[in-house]
């Protein structure tokens, strides 16, 4: 019969115990199990509090990603799918661009927020929306900076797991329009990989980030001009 080759540590620790050492073997096995359990618990707790999330996000200097957004409306059988591209650069630069079905662009940098609409084959600055969009972009910037609990308009909860969740529950005012925001994070680095927004009237928006690339160089102009 062909001999099974175990990794030396496992072989040396387990096999002699099981075969020859009786109760001592069981005790050793239990000890090892407890050690694994403790280690696993520590691993999960990487993303179980906001301070740890904030620390993890400090490794995110820049990010680029494609996103797919689905708008689920109660009156429509199928969601409206939008696609776009996101660029983020710490501490406070975002380019959030929708490519389909309607082109629109939001730029955030140290000078503020600018919203552009694609009208008559060119980008047109929408001043009214630029003023209003600042609050939303600040919140999105908080998410990519790991500062999930800084907005006083929401109460905040972390749900640990293989894909940790941050749940933002709106307080007075905002809750007339949004009933809940759920952010899905990557356990590896605390990066937001998905957003689900539950709105009034049983409407819902999901955004999934794909092709995420961390810490690559972008020109500053990406955040300054369309």
């Amino acid at each position: 019969m062909k001999k099974v080759i175990f990794p030396s540590l496992v072989r040396d620790y387990f096999l002699p115990s099981w075969r020859f050492r009786g109760n001592m073997g069981i005790i050793k096995t239990m000890t090892l199990f407890i050690c694994f359990w403790v280690l696993f618990s520590v691993g999960v707790s990487v993303a179980d509090d906001f301070e740890t999330l904030r620390q993890s996000a400090q490794n995110i200097k820049s990010l680029s990603a494609d996103f797919v957004q689905e708008k689920h409306l109660k009156i429509l059988a199928n969601p409206i799918t939008s696609k776009g591209r996101l660029y983020f650069k710490a501490p406070r630069s975002i380019r959030w661009e929708y490519l389909t079905p309607i082109k629109s662009l939001t730029l955030m940098n140290d000078n503020g927020v600018a919203v552009y609409s694609w009208l008559e084959d060119k980008w047109v600055l929408d001043r009214a929306q630029s003023d209003a969009r600042g609050i939303v972009m600040d919140e999105i910037n908080n998410w990519f900076s790991g500062r999930f609990d800084e907005n006083p308009a929401f109460s905040h909860t972390v749900k640990p797991g293989p894909k940790p969740l941050v749940i933002l529950t709106p307080k007075e005012g905002v809750k007339n329009f949004i009933s809940l925001i759920v952010l899905t994070l990557s356990d590896a680095n605390g990066l937001v990989t998905g957003v689900e927004i539950f709105e009034s009237g049983d409407n819902r928006t999901t955004i999934d980030f794909i092709n995420e690339k961390l810490n690559t160089d972008f020109p500053e102009s990406l955040f300054e001009e369309p």
Binding site: K71, L73, I75, W118, E199, S200, N203
Partner: peptide, 30 residues
């Protein structure tokens, strides 16, 4: 106010003269 672009969704039942309309920003916000 100049020009702005939106997404509109509508459910229409002509026989009942019923219309349910949703106006969204280009980013999908209702």
């Amino acid at each position: 106010s100049g020009k702005s672009a939106f997404i509109g969704a509508v459910k229409c039942e002509p026989d009942k003269s019923t219309l349910h309309a949703v106006l969204m920003s280009a980013e999908g916000m209702v």
